[in-house]
Amino acid sequence: MTLTVREALLAFRRAPLLSALSITTIAFALFVVGLFGLVALNLRRALMGVEERVEIVVYLMRGTPVEVATMAISDIQAFPEVAEVRYVTEDEALERARRELVEFQGLLGDLQVNPLPASLEISLKPGFRDTEHVRQVAERLQGFRFAEDIRYGRDWLEKLDRLRDIAGIVGLAIGAAFAVASIIIIGTTIRMGVLHRSREIAIMRLVGATDGFIRRPFLLEGALKGAAGGALAVALNYAAYVTVDRLVFDSVFYEPPQALLIVLFGTALGFAASAVSVRRHLKRI
């Protein structure tokens, strides 16, 4: 084991330029993947911000007793899709209208009778904020006799759904393309390293080294290069994030486990690419 570690580390010392080149190449390949991930992450966050505003409003029939409304609230609260139910009384509705509809202030101020109905404002849990779930909840709400009207902005919701679908498909396609490109680039880079040492591999075999013995330092070296490239990619991504966050718009960076995933992805790729290259190479000699 110590021999494997020593040989792997020696490889960095013996060919520092090639090692640095490999790590940089891996870093840039993963940087692009990571950058795309950041864009996707921030897009999703923006979409979630919009989604949070998805709400169903149930307008109550005039004269619905508060006790009935209160009982309904606890019923609705028990729906698995429902996050929160707010009861807006007629007075509160008027108060809000006065506050929010400044241009009608004169008109609203002169009212003798409050024309606005009381309502229940229902927000949904994440994952239930698409057209289908909203429609299902709305249908169930129609069963309440006091419900005069139910509104939830169907057109707007359908547009949001489409946007979400397109973002998902495009994201997956581009993400996969970037990932495949990085796999090819990293594979080629590692292969260069193996070919660089083909003479050494041939000599190892001549003196009676087993394939496993020859392979192990290469696997470790590949994994280390991948990990170093991954770490560098995260650092580059962070620099890109800080720049955009300061100069362009407010954005978010990966959570630590997500950043770790990039490093692990690099490590796994480096390891796998080494395994394939060395196996192919050993087969030929």
Partner: peptide, 22 residues
């Protein structure tokens, strides 16, 4: 078997014209 070749080679010493040193 491929895995047995190293065992054979350890019983042999091999020297070449071009030395083949690292």
């Amino acid at each position: 078997k491929r895995s047995e070749i190293p065992r054979l080679r350890r019983r042999l010493g091999i020297v070449f014209q071009d030395f083949r040193l690292l």
